[in-house]
Lab assay of single mutants.
Amino acid sequence: MTEYKLVVVGAGGVGKSALTIQLIQNHFVDEYDPTIEDSYRKQVVIDGETCLLDILDTAGQEEYSAMRDQYMRTGEGFLCVFAINNTKSFEDIHHYREQIKRVKDSEDVPMVLVGNKCDLPSRTVDTKQAQDLARSYGIPFIETSAKTRQGVDDAFYTLVREIRKHKEKMSKDGKKKKKKSKTKCVIM
């Protein structure tokens, strides 16, 4: 069974824990209790493949930012979460993405942009803004509501699919490099 290491990042209060708990335990946590770091595991079937999701729910508070490099190193894919009623959390996505790329030393890291709290009427981040940002990053965008469960499975499952595509691409690139290195030079 394939294991996928997913990391949920975003500013404090955007609903990272609520999304994760909704996926794992099928219930909505409405009281806000700032996370330092929590880890969850769940076995699911995605596109006919049974897999184990190892999900790291991270601290959004700035005082825990020193811990970010460590979990970013171990993560295979990242859910970059903002709240649709919090423009600052949307603007912060850029910083999370840049930090992930720096730590992973790669421009090509599996990510999904997630606009959470889409059940709320007080939207300050337009869907088109988020779609445009995701398009500019070359990553999928999904709106979710941890409260109603809308888009929750889709967000995590899409990230797994992005990781699969990335692994497939990397193995193809690896095979191309191996083929090239088999060419021999004969000096007579």
Results as ranks from 00 to 15, higher is better:
C51T: 09
E3K: 08
V9Y: 09
K16W: 00
V45D: 15
L6A: 04
I46P: 11
T2A: 13
G48H: 09
A11M: 14
A59I: 02
F28G: 02
D57G: 00
V14F: 09
I21V: 14
L56Q: 13
T35L: 01
Q22F: 05
I24G: 15
V7T: 14
L19R: 00
T20H: 01
A18G: 13
L6H: 02
V45G: 13
G10P: 00
E3C: 07
T20F: 01
Y64I: 12
T20Q: 05
Q61Y: 08
E3W: 03
V8C: 06
G15E: 00
K5R: 12
T50N: 13
E31M: 09
E49C: 07
V44S: 12
S17L: 01
V8D: 01
T35M: 01
D54K: 04
E37S: 03
T50K: 14
T58L: 09
L52K: 09
R41I: 07
D54E: 13
D54R: 04
I24E: 07
E31G: 07
T20C: 07
D54I: 02
C51N: 11
G48A: 07
T2L: 09
Q43R: 13
D54T: 05
K5E: 07
A18K: 06
G12V: 06
G48E: 11
E3D: 10
I36C: 06
T50L: 09
D47G: 11
Q61F: 07
T58M: 07
E62G: 12
D30E: 12
D54M: 03
H27V: 11
S17A: 00
G60T: 04
G15S: 00
A59C: 11
D30K: 12
V44D: 11
Y32S: 04
G48C: 04
D33R: 02
T2E: 14
L53K: 05
L19D: 13
L53Q: 06
I21C: 08
F28A: 03
S17E: 01
N26D: 12
P34Y: 04
Y4K: 15
G10S: 04
V8Y: 02
E62W: 07
D33F: 04
T35H: 00
V9P: 02
A59N: 10
S39P: 01
R41A: 08
Q43D: 12
Y64N: 15
L6M: 08
R41P: 02
P34Q: 06
K16E: 03
R41Y: 05
I36T: 04
I46Q: 09
K16G: 05
E31W: 05
I24F: 15
T35A: 01
V29G: 08
T35K: 01
Q22E: 13
Q25S: 15
I21W: 11
